[in-house]
Amino acid sequence: MKSRWLPYALFAAWVVVLATTPLWGSNYIVRVAIMIAMFTGLTLSWNFIGGFAGYPSFSTAAFFGIGCYAGALAQRAGVPMVLAWIVATVVVGAIAAALGAIILKMRGHYFAIASIGIVEVARLIISSWGSLTGGGDGLNVPLMSGGPNAVARIFLLVMIVIMIMSFIVTVIVDRSRLGFGLRCIQQNEDAANMVGVNNRLYKVIAYTLSALFCGTIGAAHASWTGYIDPSDSFSILMSVKVPVMCLLGGPGTLLGPVIGTAAFMMLEEVFWANFLDYNRAILGAVIVILIFFLPGGLLALRYRDIARRFGLLREPKMAA
């Protein structure tokens, strides 16, 4: 029996673990925690379009990158930092809604390709619009005052708050008419339309939701690092990693994105530390394993069966 409260309890515990890293971990651990919180927010966002609606979007890096630039430009224009993040969120949301209305006419592979195209086009526009964006030279963003450790703690909390907000929105969507309709679309789009789901509208909402927090996260990341450039801000690798993390954990679920991100990033750190040369190879390996062995992600595994196979769990004795 799965408890209704289990996902929330696990999520809360995970938040505590991440938030307390400055108390028990090294600077390196805190940095990893910031990256995990940040990527969890991105993965939870992707889950709206990729998990709930089942549309394989690779636009994450576009939203993140536009968020970086919108936030940085706003801050350079004198907008206070937090307000600049909100501006970035709104800008990215509006752009996603407009783009979604166009590319969500496509399905399957065509949609996937269009969603990658958006990353490239956004990067091109940003890097050729030198007068505004600094082009390939990048942009400096006003740094926060304070020592590096204090700043890291602040951004850890910022990323955790954004992660919690995306989790809360996920919970709301999961229980609402919207979430129900998106699941219908994911399972059978024509049948969904035929029972009265306004597919286009729902997909555009899901795509916009998948963008909003990417914008916030991009802007916050820009404020944290103090410098952005087009190739770091619009990285195709990010657009691939985020869906892989979500698929690893379990798409369309509450905790899947959280678990998948944590598992993937910890693996990645281990590989970074021990096998610097093969780091990229694990992304490939994880993708292959996912496709062949874990179609529903880690959450869909039948842990009882596995535990039994390895003798970790005794067969329950039949009552006489």
Binding site: R177, F180, G181, R183, C184, Q187, N188, A191, A192, V195, G196, V197
Partner: peptide, 16 residues
């Protein structure tokens, strides 16, 4: 909707 229950399938009709 293959991975929904029978009840949820019918509920989709009622809801939308």
């Amino acid at each position: 909707f293959p991975r929904m229950t029978v009840l949820e399938n019918v509920a989709a009709g009622a809801l939308f």
